[in-house]
């Protein structure tokens, strides 16, 4: 399966390089053609692939760790916290003074949210308690974002931040790729090796420990990894929701529900989803381009509804 998914991602990446308002840009001259492809489409397609990959992977990791098919960076508030931290970095002027402030703030915000969740949901991973926790974290993050915006001297802060939070990878240049990609790749490397312990956790924390899992250091490792991935992704692209929910959902039955086995396919499906969604929003005949996050939410929210209903029906529901 992974080989086919890899092929799909590669294909979508190439399509993403080929699609845009200018279509075949070399007809405008070699120099403009290269500028359009190299400065605009390559960063966009690469960011789309990386962001989709880490969001899908983060969803799979969180679902395995919390043993809950509804855990997702957006739904449970991790993206919102990363967004809040990035907004702080932005409006304090820190991001302008120090390039890495933006991704680092995002990473700190995301890691904090994951840590909060892991602490709160340690005892019971019931669907309802998890979603309520997500509602609370999302609400706090939204309120804090409003607070920062109210304190901002920029009168257009509200408008631009609502646009930014809706998630987009349009017109990000190579600098963005350079500051975010290393963190995303590092985060993925940190969590990808944890698959066997996520497998063990499907028997509960005690049994996992009896099988040799060091759950405390595992928790730290996953918090750091998800924080790096979601934080860096959110700080350059805003909130792109539901990818982390849909990707593991699509692959789970095909890997016989083993949490560890969902990691790599979820990453690939996530990358394919975001690349595909980003191609679709470019082609949709809307007056101005639809925000990527808006599109993934429109498609993803029904998935959440379905997953909640299935979780109620399934024997594993709490």
């Amino acid at each position: 399966m992974n080989r086919w998914l890899l092929l799909l991602v590669a294909m979508l990446y190439l399509v993403s390089l080929a699609v845009g308002p200018a279509w075949w840009p070399w007809r405008l001259g070699t120099e403009v053609g290269w500028t359009i492809v190299w400065e605009l489409r390559v960063p966009r397609a690469t960011l789309g692939m990386l962001i989709g990959g880490v969001l899908g992977l983060s969803g799979a990791v969180l679902q395995g760790w919390l043993r809950n098919p509804l855990a997702e960076p957006g739904v449970i508030g991790v993206s919102a916290c990363a967004g809040f931290a990035a907004v702080c970095a932005f409006y304090s002027g820190l991001a302008a003074a120090f390039v890495l402030a933006l991704p680092l703030a995002g990473i700190a915000g995301a890691a904090l949210a994951v840590a909060l969740l892991m602490g709160a949901v340690r005892a019971g991973t019931g669907t309802v308690s998890l979603l309520l926790m997500g509602v609370a974290i999302n609400a706090i993050a939204a309120a804090l974002i409003s607070l920062v915006l109210a304190l901002s001297p920029n009168p257009f802060a509200y408008q631009e931040i609502s646009l930014w939070l809706a998630g987009s990878i349009v017109d990000r240049d190579l600098r963005y790729l350079a500051i975010a990609a290393p963190f995303m790749i590092l985060g993925a490397a940190i969590v990808l090796g944890a698959g066997r312990w996520l497998d063990a956790l499907s028997l509960g924390e005690d049994t996992a420990r009896s099988l040799g899992a060091d759950t405390r250091s595992l928790g730290l490792r996953l918090t750091l990894g998800v924080g790096l991935m979601v934080g860096a992704a959110t700080s350059v692209a805003g909130v792109v929701g539901f990818v982390g929910l849909i990707a593991p959902h699509l692959v789970r039955a095909r890997v016989a529900f083993r949490p560890g086995a969902t990691l790599v396919p979820s990453m690939l499906v996530g990358a394919a989803l975001v690349l595909g969604a980003d191609i679709v929003v470019r082609l949709l005949p809307t007056a101005s381009e639809l925000q990527l996050g808006v599109f993934t939410s429109l498609v993803g929210a029904p998935f959440l509804v379905r997953a909640v209903r299935k979780a109620h029906a399934a024997w594993l529901a709490t």
């Binding site: 500028t35 400065e39 907004v87 802060a157």
Partner: peptide
């Protein structure tokens, strides 16, 4: 525009735009 901290004015400093 980049003088006051704003998320979206960075557009103005985009590499591609500088190239143009």
């Amino acid at each position: 525009a980049n003088a006051s901290p704003a998320r979206a004015t960075e557009f103005v400093g985009h590499h591609a735009l500088l190239a143009l």
